[in-house]
Design a binder for these strands. Sequence first.
DNA 1: TCGACTTCTGACCGATCGGTCAGTATGCTG
DNA 2: CAGCATACTGACCGATCGGTCAGAAGTCGA
Lengths: 194, 194
Amino acid sequence: MTTRDTLVQAALERFARFGYLGSSIQQIADDVGTSKSSVLYHFDSKEALLEAAMAPALDALATLIDALPQLRDDKVSAAPALVTGFVDTLMQHSAAVSIFISQRGALQQVPVIQRGNEIVDAIARTLVLEAPSTRVLTRLSIGLAGVAFILGDALDDSHEHPDPAEMREILIDTLLELCMPAIVPAAATTGRDA
Amino acid sequence: MTTRDTLVQAALERFARFGYLGSSIQQIADDVGTSKSSVLYHFDSKEALLEAAMAPALDALATLIDALPQLRDDKVSAAPALVTGFVDTLMQHSAAVSIFISQRGALQQVPVIQRGNEIVDAIARTLVLEAPSTRVLTRLSIGLAGVAFILGDALDDSHEHPDPAEMREILIDTLLELCMPAIVPAAATTGRDA
DNA sequence: TCGACTTCTGACCGATCGGTCAGTATGCTG
DNA sequence: CAGCATACTGACCGATCGGTCAGAAGTCGA
């Protein structure tokens, strides 16, 4: 792995754990055993490092959205597969997702965060079944923010974490239930854990 | 209102909008038209200011929890009132709630955040019906984090916000559904918005 | 009028921040 | 070998950070 890649990885972990503003270039350099100057050789600025770290996640989500406008007419039957792919992508990029959710407010003017906001809007437009009401949009926000929070919490090693496969199943069920309550049989979620 | 109170209010808004690390004492002083030295006269440190700002919310939640261990035996019938009171408290202290959720990771070693973590654990113990399973705990986390995210977003004046009363109703319904799916009739949430 | 107390301020401190720059080591290419 | 690009470093810069401190200004009761 190139130095640049290890820096991106270290930045992803630092930013997710301690926040963008709570992380310094020096700390990230120390994490990978190089110098601050080396970081600024590979990336023009701290913000450019953030963008490089977030880009793969945003690209993956954008690709996911672009790939499925063709099934816009049959959202109900496509929903489970859609949400499944969505959760998988979020889990693959959990650090970036966690960064976006927790730093979104503080970094409103940063371009890469604005791009994330646009993608979230596109996701909302894709997942919402009917004409957007306050209720359905609020439930969607709760689902997305909640899932992102869970993924961020799973990066913390101060406590035990459940099996990723089990987590995946729970996230898919819950998100589906929140986004499209009309098409999810209630029994599927109420009687699962005994 | 005393200078101290206005400082607490300004700190609450700053921290919620830009994060604790993204806010400086100087900025908060400027917000209320005083000097940085004046802030540090009323509060020993920036961290003490954060604690003073968070305290009312944490006190309210702690009081709410302490008040209801007696209905531990009949959680099912008590649940709606419990969640309603809980959402009301969160909405009354939305800035502090937003701060806690978004800064929790970056400020793990700050005492007032640790106190918040303990309160969240107590809330989980109170709201969970059965023996805690991964599924029910995950759903609870999604609900709490999602609701907190919504409340933080409502502090942002860059876009329109729905009626607080409508929001309250939606939050109560959704949280109840996430925490205690077994006792919530699915029809209550699926057919509401048409 | 005289302290004593509260409130508040500007000057100042050391530390750290993001970022610049000149220079060095290495290795490929002609 | 010379020449050039890549990778990297330490010294340094101005700005800002949280926090200290001596003192000014106003209020109060004795």
